[in-house]
Computed example of a mutant assay.
Amino acid sequence: MRELLEKELANKPFFLTTKDVEELINSSHTCVSELIKAGELPAYKFGRNYKIPKGSLIDWILKSKI
């Protein structure tokens, strides 16, 4: 599963924007922001914007699966 996710994200930059994550997981801005603020989705804050490392998103997806 990890290999499939890495292949899917291969053309994306190392740091994803919240908008990128919203589109990838088909979720709202509010939901992604809440995940970041709760510490569930690791992210770095650059100025007023959050950036999510691709590896952190992959780890979160794998950890969150049912």
Rank of each mutant, 00 (worst) to 15 (best):
M1Q: 06
R2A: 02
R2E: 08
R2N: 04
E3N: 11
E3I: 03
L4W: 02
L4Y: 05
L4D: 05
L4P: 00
L5M: 14
L5W: 07
L5G: 02
L5P: 00
L5V: 01
E6S: 07
K7Q: 06
K7A: 06
K7P: 00
K7T: 02
E8L: 08
L9R: 02
L9W: 01
L9V: 02
L9M: 06
L9D: 01
A10K: 13
N11H: 11
N11C: 01
P13L: 04
P13F: 13
F14A: 03
F14W: 09
F15V: 00
F15M: 13
F15P: 04
F15R: 00
L16K: 04
L16T: 06
T17P: 15
T17F: 13
T18G: 09
T18E: 15
T18N: 11
T18I: 14
K19Q: 13
K19L: 09
D20L: 04
V21H: 07
L24D: 01
L24G: 02
L24V: 01
N26Q: 15
N26H: 10
N26E: 12
S27E: 11
S27L: 04
S27G: 06
S27M: 10
S27V: 01
S28V: 02
S28N: 06
H29L: 08
H29T: 04
H29E: 13
T30V: 10
T30K: 15
C31H: 13
V32S: 12
V32Y: 12
V32N: 11
S33E: 11
S33N: 13
S33T: 06
E34K: 15
L35Y: 14
I36Q: 13
K37S: 10
A38L: 07
G39N: 08
E40G: 11
E40N: 14
L41F: 11
L41M: 06
P42K: 14
Y44W: 13
Y44V: 09
Y44C: 02
K45L: 14
K45F: 15
F46L: 12
G47E: 06
G47L: 11
G47N: 13
R48S: 12
N49A: 15
K51T: 04
K51W: 09
I52D: 10
I52Y: 10
I52G: 10
I52V: 15
P53I: 09
P53V: 07
K54M: 05
S56P: 03
S56V: 02
S56K: 12
L57C: 05
L57R: 12
I58D: 10
I58S: 08
D59L: 07
W60Q: 05
I61W: 04
I61N: 01
I61Q: 07
I61V: 12
L62W: 02
K63P: 01
K63Q: 14
S64P: 00
S64D: 04
S64E: 08
K65M: 03
K65D: 08
K65Q: 13
K65Y: 04
K65T: 05
I66F: 08
I66M: 12
